[in-house]
């Protein structure tokens, strides 16, 4: 066994021992999921039109219900969702294992993610937009009888929608090895719409409005009518900052002399801007890591219980806080 394989085996054993130890403390399976049965009685007279939905619930609610009535059927242990919690935990660890080294488990998880996410978007796009906004316009009766009985009864056939249908089919032609020019029509349409939208909007919201937002009085007075030094200084800095950064972007003149110095000031302003961006980016990334660890510690390992989902949580049990 080489060094790398030995590392993986050791890590696996440590992980398995820790999880087994955790179960031993709990004296039962951890990561269990519970559901609440919500009966749906769509039609009183037709038995086929009655079914049960299962909403997420918690062990606390399950235990309370069992204490009250041992034969209750409202709150239940869910086997499929418990498996789900364990699979989610394993997949989380598979992805995190990439930090140690690229490995087949990470690649496995990544491959699944690519396949699942592409299919997810495709399904959502189909049911949320293609069916109601394309098929529903071209053949409302068919769509109403099939999947959308709620579609308005006064929906008329709108033949104009043949245009996006044809353009859509032409767009899918990209997948074909031949006839590459066919997909240029819908591509041109998409790009044309984007350009039309952005040409006006960027000028309005990000150019004209920014100039307007930037025009501020340099002499500020406070509520008592006296000169407000700090607010005035703030506005002076704002205007100097914008102008000096713009000078830096202006390449029609050589950055020498006074222009060079102003451009240098612009660079300093931008460095502060990038520093702020870095600080905020770090903040964001850490919050994303926190939620994953919370999932592992809370839903899977039952080490913490911030939302009162269970009767026990090891950390609070050990009196660590």
């Amino acid at each position: 066994m080489n060094k790398s394989n030995r590392l993986w085996v050791i890590l696996f054993i440590i992980g398995a021992v820790l999880v087994a130890g955790r179960m031993l403390i709990s004296q039962s399976l951890i990561g269990k999921a519970y559901v609440q049965a919500v009966p749906v009685n769509a039609d009183e007279e037709n038995e086929d039109h009655k079914w049960t939905l299962y909403e997420q619930s918690s062990q606390t609610k399950f235990n309370e219900a069992v204490l009250e009535d041992p034969n209750q059927t409202k709150y239940l242990f869910s086997f499929s969702r418990t498996i789900g919690v364990w699979i989610a935990a394993l997949l989380t660890i598979f992805v995190l294992s990439f930090l140690i080294r690229d490995n087949p488990l990470y690649k496995f998880a990544e491959s699944i993610f690519i396949g699942i996410s592409a299919a997810y978007w495709m399904v959502v796009g189909f049911w949320s937009t293609v069916v109601p906004n394309l098929f529903g316009k071209l053949s409302p009766d068919m769509v109403r009888d099939w999947a959308m009985p709620g579609l308005g009864i006064d929906e008329r056939v709108e033949l104009m929608y043949i245009v996006p249908l044809v353009l859509g089919l032409m767009l899918l032609w990209i997948l074909s090895p031949k006839g590459g020019w066919i997909s240029r029509w819908p591509t041109a349409f998409i790009i044309g719409v984007f350009c039309g939208l952005r040409l006006i909007t960027f000028i309005h919201a990000d150019f004209l409005s920014q100039i307007r937002n930037g025009i501020a009085p340099l002499w500020m007075v406070d509520s008592s009518g006296s000169f407000d030094f700090w607010e005035s200084l703030r506005n002076v800095f704002l205007i100097i900052g914008v102008l000096s950064c713009l000078v830096y972007f202006f390449f029609s003149f050589e950055h020498k002399g006074i222009i060079g110095k102003t451009a240098k000031l612009g660079i300093w302003f931008m460095m502060i801007t990038f520093g702020a961006a870095f600080g905020y980016t770090v903040m964001g990334r850490i919050a994303l890591l926190a939620i994953r660890l919370e999932f592992l510690f809370d839903d899977w390992l039952w080490l913490i219980d911030p939302t009162g989902k269970r009767l026990e949580a090891v950390i609070s049990m050990l009196g660590l806080f």
């Binding site: 850490i286 890591l289 926190a290 660890l293 919370e294 510690f297 080490l303 913490i304 911030p306 950390i315 660590l320 806080f321």
Partner: peptide
């Protein structure tokens, strides 16, 4: 640094 404060809540 992220895990310990979560565990200690």
């Amino acid at each position: 640094s992220v895990a310990i404060p979560i565990l200690l809540q």
